[in-house]
Design a protein around this nucleic acid. Structure first.
Lengths: 362, 362
DNA sequence: TTGTATGCGTTATCAG
DNA sequence: CTGATAACGCATACAA
């Protein structure tokens, strides 16, 4: 083993240009052992030591054993930065989230995204880096960060409004996977849920249970989820020969939903059902309806969208459409992992199903 | 300027060992320009080019102008990984969050943490890396990631249960700042809110408004926030000569709060007020009270804790204690930024105030 | 003020 | 199977 007290310097290998003085212990952390020290302790070259670390092919059992012993003894861990510089990989991917608005702060949505993604990335030994893009110069900043080699790829949550970010990212050549159909860019590398079908089914349920005057509070007209859920609602009502004029738009927040429902009821006091593009807004609707003396679901049925926890705790509990956010994020993570492993970019998006969950409100 | 069509190779500098062949364009991304190319284009040495990039001291105006022009022309951006290897800094800090449980998924808590922290880190030109620690081997994994040079420091949200993570991190020498008083470690480098005072004030308000039989649903007994809020409640009741026997513990979730309140009411049907250690549990309590035919606040007053959005939207809206989560995270970010900039570790924690917000429930 | 030389810790190439 | 050695891209003592 040739491990003299010094820890290095023996072994006869001609590669020790390092001054070898007492390591400059800055702060309080003692310097981590390097590959060179491992090689010296094992009596092999750095190249051989490196081989056993990376797969261990093409090395004699003897050399491998020696190196592994040295690694264990020194507590060696490869320095990720140095490795990145050499391999030009960082083994980390960014989760890009839109500007922090009411939705980021108060919606369980992002918690689920984060959980699903970090879990699937972990399975591929990738680290998640959260990049929140702020308005103003934040986008430039984010693009610079993402395209200068600090991450190997990105999962972009495309629930934000259409802007140039998506396009800039794919044009930069950075491997990207989108969660939610991306607007403003022509990429098939995304996973989404079938928002159209989900909304349609919700509306169909309302119709099947006898409702005839059905309104909706749609999401923002410039977000994919907002557009698609409105489309599904229209499809169902049109197919049933019902009018589709009772539409208001909300911003996916409780306050926004509250205001939108008030407008809707003012214009259409005869509504016997309302479909809201997410549960947060539906929760606001519940308050408005109660305040106006309408009973849910006897007088007005309420249907939400998301089922991310809130729906089960309102009074009455909300019937809603399951938004498989966590699974979407996980699939997006797998997608980017595939891409980074050399897989081909998927030619078709992954669309997860949108099932109903019936509770008391409709 | 000596810029021949080749872009490099002139200037007489003796450092061009690179083969100079057509860059291996892997994937679809064209290779980013390097410092060497900038130096060549500007007709200076790499050292000089490096100097103008890092502050620009000790360089002639002429050289600086030439380098800046070259940078602009080539669109040069320093490669962060190479820079990190040389400087031994990464300019990024980790946000360490506990295992993903119900709280991470459904609580707006983490959204606020993320927002506050990323904002303050951005001000210090630091990038936030989110590290979620899973049960099992997740902790080893996290510690390895955090202590091998991929981040310069960490902000640890200490709302998770007491475990060895805190200790392992500070012992590793990694600069750490905690959000919430850390259990299991003796560090003054944290920012918290005065949970004891907050809970005490809430209870005092209940007492001042005439309530005499006051119960509480405390948080977990092994989390700082749970412990402190219970303490505050006890202090107020004891000072008023009221009994402190009506105590149940919940897990900070709606379901947990629901169950805990049911137990509490079974044991103490005469309660005229209840203080819950967070709004999620308070929201569960609202449902139980309504179901049992008790009016809020006429029969039973309800007081929550957090005011992170939910409290304003329940029926009735919750009186609660403001938990300045975003400001805490921001302060923790500033703390770690200071530390990394060479500042001294703070000798005393930062404690933010806990104010009441009165709504209809109490 | 500028340039030279070297180090940062790995991986990868290419002779042996 | 193994070992020199050259990248990787940038920063920085030190010399001039």
């Amino acid at each position: 083993m040739t491990t003299d007290g010094n820890g290095a310097g023996v072994g006869g290998s001609a590669d020790a240009p390092t001054p070898a003085g007492p390591v400059g212990a800055r702060g309080g952390r003692r310097a981590a052992p390097t590959l060179r020290q491992v090689a010296a302790a094992a009596g092999v070259s750095r190249a051989t030591a490196s081989r056993v670390i990376n797969g261990g092919h093409l090395v004699s059992d003897q050399a491998r054993a020696a190196v592994e012993a040295a690694i264990a003894e020194l507590g060696f861990v490869p320095h990720p930065v140095a490795r990145s510089l050499a391999t030009r990989r960082t083994d980390s991917v960014a989760l890009v989230v839109p500007e922090p608005n009411e939705r980021l702060l108060g919606d369980p949505f992002f918690g689920h995204i984060i959980n699903g993604l970090s879990l699937s990335l972990e399975a591929a030994d990738l680290q998640m880096v959260l990049v929140v893009v702020r308005p103003g110069s934040g986008q430039d900043r984010a693009v610079r960060y993402l395209t200068t080699g600090k991450v190997d790829g990105a999962v972009v949550t495309s629930h934000h409004r259409e802007d140039s970010l998506n396009r800039r990212l794919v044009e930069s050549g950075l491997p990207c996977a989108f969660q939610g159909r991306p607007l403003g860019v022509d990429s098939a590398c995304y996973v989404d849920t079938d928002n159209v079908a989900g909304a349609r089914r919700a509306a169909e349920h309302l119709i099947a249970s006898g409702r005839r005057r059905i309104g909706t509070v749609a999401g923002p007209a410039d977000m994919a989820a907002g557009i698609d859920r409105l489309t599904g609602w229209r499809e169902a009502l049109t197919a049933a020969g019902l009018p589709v004029d009772a539409v208001e738009h909300g911003d996916f927040t409780v306050a926004g939903g509250t205001a939108a429902v008030q407008r809707l009821l003012r214009r259409h006091p005869d509504l016997d059902a309302v479909f809201l593009a997410n549960d947060l807004m539906a929760s606001g609707a519940l308050g408005v309806l109660a305040a106006s003396g309408r009973r849910v679901p006897e007088d007005v049925a309420v249907f939400g969208y998301d089922d991310l926890g809130l729906a089960a705790t309102t009074t009455p509990p909300l019937s809603t459409v399951v938004n498989p956010v966590e699974r979407m994020a996980a699939r997006a993570g797998a997608m980017i992992a595939d891409l980074l492993a050399g897989g081909e970019p998927s030619s078709a998006p992954v669309i997860l199903d949108a099932e109903l969950v019936l509770r008391a409100s409709a």
